Structures are given as structure tokens and as C-alpha cells.
Computed example of a mutant assay.
Amino acid sequence: MSALPTSTSVTSPRPVISHPRWLRLTHWLNALAVLVMVTSGWRIYNASPLYGFSFPTSITLGGWLGGALQWHFAAMWLLVFNGLVYLIINVASGRLSRRFFPVSPKGVMRDLWAALRGRLGHADLNHYNQVQRVAYLLVMVDIAMMVVSGLVLWKSVQFATLRELMGGYEGARHVHFIAMALLMGFVAVHLVMVALVPKTLWAMIVGRKERV
């Protein structure tokens, strides 16, 4: 009696969730808010330059000071509320501790050295190396400083304590500008990394990759 043929099943690649929907939504809303805030902020800066230069009008938003202020405040509220949603979900779900910790000077230097030599792996998009962890944590703090200093510039009398902690109104202007510059530095590096590892952009758009 011949043995029954055994069936072989072909396992097709299964999609793996790399970024949940809420993360992708808050990421792109944050990107939009930052773009509007920075370009309108440059127009506001041009109305009273803090340093010895101005930004080209072609890359600013608002057309005039009043219009730039309206765009700036609208984007500010989007950034604040969207940022709070992002932070609350990260903390409540435990994602903050899983993705961004632990961090150590030794680990950061190890991963930085590996990155400089082109030996830092990107196979698992769910894993952040320690350089990424520090960068994301610092940008969270930077955005918070940008918002706090912006509140001082917006309502200087109402936030008098914060104003004094920042060295007065002009001090708050310096803090706000430096925080913006650091954020733009982060964005520039972020875009370079996306260009080097394009699948990270696709994962942030569709939220999944194929498991081979």
C-alpha cells in the first residue's frame, strides 16, 4: 500500500507591522506642524532680525507679519496637541521605555562608531540604536523648549516667571531661535538617513514591511 502524498504548503511573506497607525499619523502631523512653524517663524524673524542676517522671503510663509503670525499660532497648537497625544500614547503603551531606553555613553559611542564605519544594521526597523534613541529624546526636549520659549514671546506678561528663567524677553528669543536651529539640524540629518535607508520612509507611510 503506497503512502499518501504529503502536501507541501508554500508560506508567503507575511506583513510585519513596523509602525502602528497612530505613530504614522502623529509623525506626519508633527512634520507638517514643524514645516509651517519654521517657515512662518522665519518670516516673523525677518520683521525684527535677532542676528545679522535675514531669511530669503521665498522660503518664508505668511507673506507679511500678520499672516505669518496666524500661520505660526495655528501650527503651534497642532504641534502641542499632536505632541501630547504622541507622548501620552508612548508612555501609556510602554513604547517609550521599550524603544528609547536603555541609553548609556558607552552604548552611544559604540553605535556612533559603527555608524561612521557604515556597519550599523538597519534590518529591524522596530529597533532603535542608541544614537537614534538619544537623538529622538533630545529632539523631544528641544521641541518642548521651543514651545515654552514661544509662550514667553507670545504672552510675556502672563509667563513672567518663565521669561525671567530665560534671561528676559530677548533671552527667550535666543532660546527660541537656537531650539529652532537644532530642530532643523535634526531634520537635515533625519532626511539624510532616510535617503541612505529608503525603506524607513516606506515603513512610515504604509506601516509595514514584508517578512521574507
Rank of each mutant, 00 (worst) to 15 (best):
M1N: 14
A3M: 15
L4H: 15
P5Q: 08
S9H: 13
V10I: 14
T11A: 08
P13G: 10
P15Q: 02
P15I: 05
S18T: 14
S18I: 14
P20Q: 08
R21V: 15
R21M: 14
L23W: 13
R24T: 13
R24V: 13
H27I: 12
L29M: 12
N30A: 04
A31P: 01
L32F: 09
T39V: 11
S40T: 12
Y45S: 03
Y45E: 03
N46H: 02
S48I: 02
P49S: 01
Y51W: 11
F53T: 10
S54W: 14
P56F: 13
S58G: 11
L61A: 06
G63H: 04
W71G: 09
W71A: 12
F73W: 13
M76D: 06
M76L: 14
L79G: 00
V80D: 01
V80T: 02
F81N: 01
N82E: 03
N82P: 03
V85D: 02
L87W: 06
I88Y: 06
V91P: 11
G94D: 10
G94K: 09
L96T: 08
R98N: 08
S104M: 10
S104L: 09
K106W: 15
V108Q: 09
M109A: 13
M109V: 15
D111H: 05
L112G: 02
A115G: 07
L116K: 04
L116E: 07
L116Q: 07
A123T: 11
D124F: 11
L125A: 10
L125G: 05
N126S: 09
N126E: 06
Y128M: 01
Q130K: 07
V131Y: 03
Q132V: 13
R133G: 12
V134A: 02
A135I: 14
L138T: 10
V139F: 03
M140C: 05
M140Y: 04
D142C: 01
M145E: 00
M146K: 05
V148R: 00
V148I: 10
S149C: 02
S149V: 01
G150W: 09
G150K: 04
L151P: 07
S156M: 07
V157D: 09
Q158T: 12
L162I: 01
L162H: 00
G167S: 05
G167K: 05
G168N: 07
G168E: 09
E170G: 06
E170K: 10
E170T: 12
G171P: 12
R173G: 15
V175K: 01
F177H: 06
F177I: 05
A181H: 00
L182F: 00
G185D: 06
G185K: 04
V189N: 03
H190R: 05
H190C: 07
V192I: 11
A195L: 13
K199T: 10
L201Y: 12
W202S: 11
A203W: 13
A203E: 13
A203L: 12
M204D: 11
V206G: 03
R208S: 13
K209A: 14
E210H: 14
V212E: 14
